[in-house]
C-alpha cells in the first residue's frame, strides 16, 4: 500500500507541474507589435454663423477623417459624435441651448481609401439625430489592410424661442475606437 501512495503522489505532482505554467505565464509575457495606428482628424473650431431665436442654424463641421493602419484582417471601427449644451453669458436657462436641440448628420462618405464596408450614421441633414447622447456617426467593418474614410458632417443648432441674443459656444466630440 505504501507503494501505491507513493505512486499517486508522483502522478499528482506531475499533473500539477503540467497545468501550472499554462495559467501563470499568461499575463506577464508580452511581445512587441509593429502595426500602425488608428487615427482621427485633429480637431478644428468652426464658426456657427448667426441666427435668430426659434430658427435653426446649420453649420458644416469640416472634414472628419478616420484612418486605420492597424492592418488587421476584417477589422472594424466605430465613430460617435456627441454635443454639449451651447451657452452664452452666464449660462442661465435663457442663455442655454440644450444638447437635445443640437442635431448631427454625417452625410455620405466624401472620400476614402482601402477596402472596408463603410456605413454612414445619417445619410443626410433630413435625418439628422440629436446628439445629447453619443450617436454613431460612421462605422466601418470588414476592413482589409490600411483604410481611411472621410465625411463632412452637418451640425444643426436650434435655439429655443426663449433663448436670449448672444454668442453661443458648445463642444462637439468625435470618438473613434
Amino acid at each position: 500500500m505504501r507503494h501505491a501512495l507513493l505512486v499517486t503522489t508522483a502522478a499528482l505532482g506531475l499533473v500539477g507541474g503540467l497545468t501550472l505554467p499554462a495559467g501563470a505565464a499568461d499575463t506577464t509575457t508580452t511581445f512587441t507589435l509593429t502595426a500602425g495606428a488608428l487615427g482621427v482628424s485633429a480637431p478644428v473650431s468652426k464658426n456657427l454663423g448667426s441666427g435668430s431665436a426659434g430658427a435653426p442654424v446649420s453649420a458644416s463641421l469640416g472634414d472628419v477623417t478616420v484612418s486605420d493602419a492597424r492592418g488587421t484582417l476584417l477589422g472594424s471601427w466605430t465613430a460617435t459624435a456627441v454635443s454639449s449644451a451651447f451657452t452664452t453669458g452666464g449660462a442661465t436657462p435663457n442663455e442655454t441651448i440644450a444638447a437635445t436641440n443640437v442635431t448631427y448628420a454625417s452625410g455620405l462618405e466624401t472620400g476614402g481609401s482601402g477596402t472596408a464596408v463603410r456605413v454612414p450614421g445619417q445619410l443626410s441633414a433630413a435625418v439628422a439625430v440629436a446628439i445629447d447622447t453619443a450617436k454613431t456617426a460612421f462605422s466601418a467593418t470588414g476592413a482589409l489592410g490600411t483604410n481611411s474614410t472621410t465625411w463632412s458632417p452637418t451640425v444643426i443648432v436650434s435655439p429655443p424661442s426663449s433663448a436670449v441674443a448672444g454668442t453661443y459656444t458648445g463642444t462637439v466630440t468625435h470618438s473613434v475606437a
Binding site: P43, T167, T173, H174
Partner: peptide, 23 residues
C-alpha cells in the same frame, strides 16, 4: 476604452471640436 483626447481651442461664437481615438 483607453482614450487619447485632443481638445481644440474654442473660438468665440462657434463649435469647439474635440477628437478622441481609442483602444
Amino acid at each position: 476604452v483607453v482614450w487619447a483626447e485632443q481638445a481644440a481651442a474654442a473660438d468665440a461664437g462657434g463649435i469647439s471640436s474635440v477628437s478622441r481615438v481609442g483602444i
